[in-house]
């Protein structure tokens, strides 16, 4: 049974269903309660579940993220919402030094089943301090799983296995996706290890994740008009990366362009490119291309923000370059 819902409502429904199914699940974060969530994901939840389980926090990112981690250690299943990825930097100590580290540092005695949801990305003219894509910072850290659901279906379905995971899971939700409406089948399941092939093609692999997926799919449609068959891979699990799906696709198409809203230097695109070199170099017919954000703090005016981010025309140009067309 599928229904048409927004990404925002899909995330909200996933949280509600999880809280209904398991008393240990609760959500905490800035403005999740009375305000109804910065992106309205948790709207109305405090009325239905009460303020203990829809827990407003002070503006103390390190404190409340650490408290969520501690509550997970104490047997709860917390969902910590961090309003934006830039604020998450204030909680990075807890995420890196506690959540990601305790299992190993304790010789496997302890585990931290916390889920941390973070909104990410640019496109709303929020300027340099509210427009980052720092997913790769988190994807760098052993001990974390990092997800970037781009579809309504994944936004709903990835939360359950994330909550069932005995270890910390960070979920990035791109701010430009909350308003998208797509079909949702609540019964369909997803694992936390597989990339998804969103479009089949034979000439080139366009590899992306999160908010760049729809730009990439649009570029693929336009390339088709020029007779170029592009395969689109949605990484959706940023750690651990699904090398097999990436290499299988590149083995078939022999060309790849990676589309990543992060800054180019030290980007996730760089990591994927390196893995293609390591695992698929001999099947390549062209250098791996990258379409990333320009190396600049994201500017406020619309035309400059657009110029800084990956866009459909740049993806098309990069694909054509790889194809020598």
């Amino acid at each position: 049974m599928s229904e048409q819902v927004t990404y925002r409502d899909a995330v909200g429904a996933a949280i509600r269903d999880a809280m209904t199914a398991d008393d240990r699940v609760f959500i905490m974060g800035e403005d999740v309660g009375r305000y109804g969530g910065t992106y309205a994901v948790t709207k109305g939840m405090i009325e239905d579940f009460g303020e203990d389980r829809v827990r407003d926090t002070p503006l103390s990112e390190s404190g409340f993220t650490g408290a969520g981690i501690g509550a997970a250690l104490g047997g709860m299943k917390p969902i910590v919402e961090i309003m934006t990825v830039n604020f998450s930097l204030l909680a990075l100590d807890q995420i890196l030094n506690t959540a990601a580290t305790f299992r190993h540092m304790s010789g496997g005695q302890l585990n931290i089943p916390v889920v941390i949801r973070i909104s990410t990305g640019a496109g709303r003219q929020l300027a340099a301090q509210h427009s980052h894509s720092l997913e790769n910072w988190y994807a760098h850290i052993p001990g974390l799983k990092v997800l970037a659901p781009a579809t309504v279906q994944d936004a709903y379905a990835m939360l359950r296995p994330a909550l069932e995971d005995p270890d910390p899971v960070v979920i990035f939700e791109h701010v430009m996706l909350y308003g998208r409406t797509e079909a949702l089948d609540k019964e369909a399941t997803v694992d936390l290890s597989s990339a998804a092939v969103r479009r089949n093609g034979s000439d080139i692999s366009l590899i992306t994740y999160g908010g760049s997926l729809y730009k990439t799919l649009e570029a693929a449609e336009k390339l088709a008009e020029d007779g170029i068959s592009a395969e689109v891979i949605d990484l959706r699990v940023l750690r651990p990366l699904d090398d097999a799906t990436i290499l299988k696709s590149v083995g078939k198409t022999r060309r790849a362009v990676i589309v990543d809203e992060g800054w180019k230097t030290g980007s996730l695109a760089a990591e994927v490119s390196a893995r293609i070199m390591e695992g698929g170099f001999w099947s390549l017919d062209a250098p791996v291309g990258r379409v990333c954000s320009a190396e600049v703090p994201i500017p406020y005016p619309k035309h400059l923000e657009d110029a800084a981010l990956p866009q459909v025309d740049r993806i098309i140009a990069a694909a054509k370059l790889a194809l020598g067309r």
């Binding site: 404190g63 993220t65 250690l73 104490g74 047997g75 807890q94 506690t98």
Partner: peptide, 14 residues
């Protein structure tokens, strides 16, 4: 310190 707060939160909620 945040970890201790969370452990106590878990105890209180349970």
């Amino acid at each position: 310190l945040p970890l201790a707060v969370g452990l106590a939160l878990a105890d209180k909620m349970q």
